[in-house]
């Protein structure tokens, strides 16, 4: 097991390097950032000072080296370390994503299992239709609709506000939005996997022994359907994170998405890159965790 974990860990290194390289190249492609930082009338001396402050006077390999040490540099606009800005925002996004994940897994697993319990029932069709819409709807639009319904029309929830993001009632709409979007995928997959395992011989054996359908679903089909479901939950995190960028923008939450959005409009390149880099690292880490979890759930994979 340990060698398996170590091997997977080593395999992520080139990917991580590649991502840093992409970020760096994109940052360099955008031209000399000095022009963004000083007024066009600045003297050569002033320009030099600014270049030194942001490390732009160093040769390119030294600048790349800084990225490799995860030194993200200074924000052009806020004049503070990018790492600090990004980490502050990441806390908000983490809370949002985690909440959404819980909503999605709870709803998705339940809906998928109920669908598999009675395939081709009215509930099954309704769930399939809802799932089709769910994968086709932009997260930010769903958030806008929920705000229109629950904040404007019904007045049950407060209007989104950037100043009071921590309180629970402000989290409801973003979390539910993001959760519902991923629910569709998980529900579809759960249904498919459950139905497939239900055709297996061991399920028939269990049935022959006279066990109830509910017990068979939970005790025999679910554990075996879990591997693909865990994968999708993991890979879905990428979707969740990009959805978070858009949902935060739509609901004015000061998370990573919001920070990246503001950075784009202010052309604050180090913050954009820092944010993207953090996203990518989290994504890789989750994929790694999923792979390891895989190994735990299914011994065959460990030795492949």
């Amino acid at each position: 097991m340990l060698t398996f974990v170590l091997r997977r860990l080593l395999q992520t290194l080139p990917v991580l390097l590649g991502i840093i390289l992409i970020c760096f190249v994109l940052l360099r492609l955008s031209g000399d950032p000095t022009n963004l930082l000083v007024s066009p009338h600045a003297s050569a001396q002033e320009r030099q000072l600014v270049r030194e402050r942001f490390g732009l006077d160093r040769p390119w390999y030294e600048q790349l080296g800084r990225y490799l040490r995860f030194d993200l540099g200074l924000s052009y606009q806020q004049q503070r370390p990018v790492a600090q800005i990004v980490m502050e925002a990441a806390v908000v996004t983490a809370r949002l994503t985690l909440g959404a994940m819980i909503v999605a897994v709870a709803l998705g697993l339940t809906a998928g299992m109920v669908s598999a319990y009675r395939p081709n029932s009215a509930f099954d069709y309704a769930a399939a239709a809802a799932a089709s819409v769910g994968v086709s709807i932009p997260a930010f639009w769903l958030a806008m609709l929920l705000i229109l319904l629950f904040s404007v029309k019904l007045g049950w929830l407060p209007l989104p506000s950037a100043s009071a993001p921590g309180e629970l009632q402000y989290l409801v709409i973003p979390v539910v939005t993001l959760g519902l979007i991923s629910t569709a995928l998980i529900a579809r997959l759960t249904r498919g996997c459950m139905l497939e395992t239900l055709t297996q011989d061991y399920v028939r054996t269990a049935q022959a022994k006279g066990i109830g359908r509910m017990k068979m679903l939970l005790g025999h089909a679910l554990p075996n359907a879990l591997v693909p479901i865990v994968t999708v939950i993991g890979t879905n995190l990428a979707g969740l994170l990009t959805g978070a960028v858009l949902t935060e923008t739509a609901t004015s939450m000061p998370g990573l998405g919001r920070v990246i959005y503001t950075a784009i409009s202010q052309r604050d390149h180090p913050v954009i890159m820092g944010g993207c880099l953090l996203f990518a690292v989290v994504f890789i880490a989750v994929n790694l965790a999923v792979d390891i979890l895989y190994g735990l759930l299914d011994p065959r994979i460990r030795h492949a």
Binding site: I22, L29, I272, N287
Partner: peptide, 24 residues
């Protein structure tokens, strides 16, 4: 395949954001 893994590891909209943001 390593290149594919790398691009795949990037949340797609964010990579698109990064690419778009770089252009003037």
């Amino acid at each position: 395949m390593r290149v594919t893994d790398t691009v795949f590891a990037f949340p797609s909209v964010l990579l698109a954001v990064a690419i778009t943001a770089v252009f003037d």
